[in-house]
């Protein structure tokens, strides 16, 4: 199965910030289907860390009571895109922990659509971006609560840290709720490293790059905490981070 054969344009919301020239070299994207049967548990780590442009298109279907843990590290080449569509059946649980780390002229994006199709499902998304140079990092995340999906619990925590004034972060959490009695929350912040904290760490002897690294390490750790492959992801993220400082 492949996505629509026609290359999207910027008019398509999900590709509004995409690097279309890079995308054209990868198009059409094969959709990668993940089906987790009722009551089953699954997990996946996706790491884009090479030099070449890369794009992934995940379509995840969770059966009743299924649990899925997805972690993304988007730190690859000039263009890195990870799109995720998730459908949750009754009582299913989905967690996304993602970090985007970019510098230079990189364009990185994570685009999610999480559909609570039935009652009592839970989804949580934690996305942490660190952007330097002229990089652009985008998170577009839509949570849809279908009619009748009462008892839904959906949460999005989106934060981006800009290391240079020339870097760009786009963050758009979106809620579409067609049911009553649901709990959906999102938090979203774009900021810079705390200057006071940096001076404090440096005053104890850490060189500026080390001080920044320590603070950023803590920042992105929130994306990988309790991941089945926490160590591997953290190491890969630290390596990418070192390239930005």
């Amino acid at each position: 199965m492949t996505s629509a054969a026609l290359l999207p344009t910027k008019a398509d919301e999900a590709f509004r910030y995409a690097d279309l020239a890079a995308l054209a070299t990868l198009w059409p994207l094969p959709a990668e289907a993940v089906d987790v049967a009722a009551g089953e548990t699954g997990s996946l780590s996706v790491v884009l860390a090479g030099d070449a442009p890369a794009a992934r298109d995940l379509v995840i279907t969770l059966g009743e009571g299924a649990v899925y843990d997805l972690r993304l590290l988007n730190a690859g080449g000039a263009y890195g895109r990870i799109a995720v569509k998730v459908r949750l059946a009754k009582g299913a649980k989905f967690h996304l922990g993602a970090a985007q780390l970019g510098g230079g002229d990189q364009t990185l994006e994570i685009v999610t659509e999480v559909v609570h199709a039935e009652p009592d499902a839970q989804s949580s998304q934690v996305v942490r971006s660190v952007l330097a140079g002229h990089a652009t990092g985008t998170y577009l995340g839509r949570v849809v609560v279908d009619r009748g999906a009462i008892g839904t619990d959906g949460e999005q925590s989106i934060r981006a840290m800009l290391l240079d004034r020339t870097a760009t972060a786009n963050a758009r959490p979106e809620l579409e709720i067609y049911a009553d009695d649901v709990k959906c929350a999102h938090g979203c912040a774009v900021g810079e490293l705390d200057a006071q904290g940096l001076f404090y760490l440096q005053s104890r002897g850490l060189p500026p790059a080390e001080a920044k690294k320590l603070m950023l390490q803590a920042f992105i750790a929130e994306a990988f905490v309790d991941a089945p492959e926490e160590d591997v992801l953290t190491q890969a993220a630290l390596q990418a981070l070192a390239g930005l400082l």
Binding site: Q196, G197, S203, G205, P207, M215, A218
Partner: peptide, 24 residues
Amino acid sequence: MDPHARAAAGLFLGFQYPVEIPGV
């Protein structure tokens, strides 16, 4: 000297308001 070099040279600054560093 930069702040970290001052520390390495043996200077310690005790802050009136020590700074919180979440996650570290």
